[in-house]
């Protein structure tokens, strides 16, 4: 009997696979292709206290084995999210991780407070790592003191367990990982995108209207695996690993490096069925290698 379930901060997930925030909306667009109930969790697009317009277009560009995005966290705001997206997700047998974004500590807290006691939400993921907004976002996530401070404030305000989503755009990921743990985070997730830039020499112009964007996709996977390994070695809270996962083998790299759960990101764009293929592939691996519990693989190489 294969047991793919994992538990993080008292929340049980039927398998260790979710989706990276911002690559899956709230799942509405994907439920035409896959059964959302198969996922360990749906992690939503970042939601703010009020609607955000996002950045000008072009917002996306392909790069070798990857892509850049500068969406700028466009979102409809917490009111619409609670009235439309959460009731939709409640129709599926899966956990919901709500990704929270803000420009200021108060804006993050406003969302966290609105969701207080909402049993439709299993966990909160706090985005202190978006490279595409001028204030908030990544500026919170690069300074360990700030990470500690905002984690502490959010933990005081939240009823659900809190995941702090970390940026790879730091010199030492262990420091921000530890700061999140010290601030009381129940888990950390990483990596968000690496800040990048693409220029069109023919037009002598930036490809993205925002000039810079977040790099994701298989191109960043080795960096992500290394950082998950380092972070998992530095903290005692669970790590959710992501960065360029497009198949089960990719996901297993993260699990062996110390991730309790993994997220499929940009690969959802390549193929809307990727996340279920990853789940099936992990199960197949467990059968082939006679692994009964996925938990036995977590951090195998730590």
């Amino acid at each position: 009997m294969i047991d793919m379930s994992v538990e993080i901060a008292g929340v049980r997930f039927k398998n260790p696979v979710t989706v990276a925030s911002g690559t899956f909306g709230s799942g509405m667009e994907y439920c035409e292709f896959i059964d959302l109930s198969r996922l360990g969790a749906v992690t939503t697009k970042g939601v703010a206290a009020v609607p955000w317009e996002g950045n000008p277009v072009p917002r996306v560009a392909e790069t070798p084995s990857g892509m850049l995005n500068a969406i700028g966290l466009q979102n409809p705001g917490i009111d619409v999210f609670m009235d439309r997206d959460l009731p939709f997700l409640a129709g599926f047998d899966t956990n919901v991780i709500v990704n929270v974004c803000g420009h200021t500590e108060e804006e993050y807290l406003a969302v966290v407070e609105r969701l207080y006691g909402d049993t439709r939400v299993s966990m909160l993921e706090i985005n202190i790592s978006c490279p595409n907004v001028r204030e908030g976002g990544m500026s919170f996530g690069t300074d360990p003191d700030m990470v500690y401070r905002i984690t502490k404030r959010i933990k005081e305000a939240a009823s659900q367990p809190v995941i702090m989503k970390l940026t790879p755009n730091v010199t030492d990921i262990k420091l921000t990982a530890k700061a999140a743990e010290d601030g009381g985070a129940d888990a950390i997730s990483l990596i968000n995108t690496l800040t990048g830039m693409k220029i069109d020499p023919e037009k002598r112009a930036f490809v993205l209207a925002n000039k810079t964007g977040g790099l994701s996709g298989p191109a960043i996977r080795p960096v992500a695996v290394r950082m998950v390994y380092e972070a998992a070695g530095a903290v005692n809270i669970p790590v959710i690993g992501m960065g360029g996962i497009s198949c089960a083998s990719d996901a297993l790299e993260f699990i062996l490096a110390g991730a309790s759960m993994v997220s499929v990101g940009s690969a959802n764009f390549s193929d809307p069925e990727t996340v279920t293929k990853v789940i099936d592939g992990i199960e197949d691996y467990m059968v082939r290698h006679k692994v009964e519990k996925i938990k036995d693989l977590t951090g195998y190489l730590l």
């Binding site: 911002g22 690559t23 899956f24 909306g25 509405m28 667009e29 994907y30 035409e32 697009k45 996002g54 277009v57 917002r59 996306v60 892509m67 995005n69 969406i71 466009q74 940009s266 959802n268 764009f269 809307p272």
Partner: peptide, 9 residues
């Protein structure tokens, strides 16, 4: 990016 309405690109 996605073509199906999820990425908001």
């Amino acid at each position: 990016a996605c073509g199906i309405g999820a990425c908001l690109g």
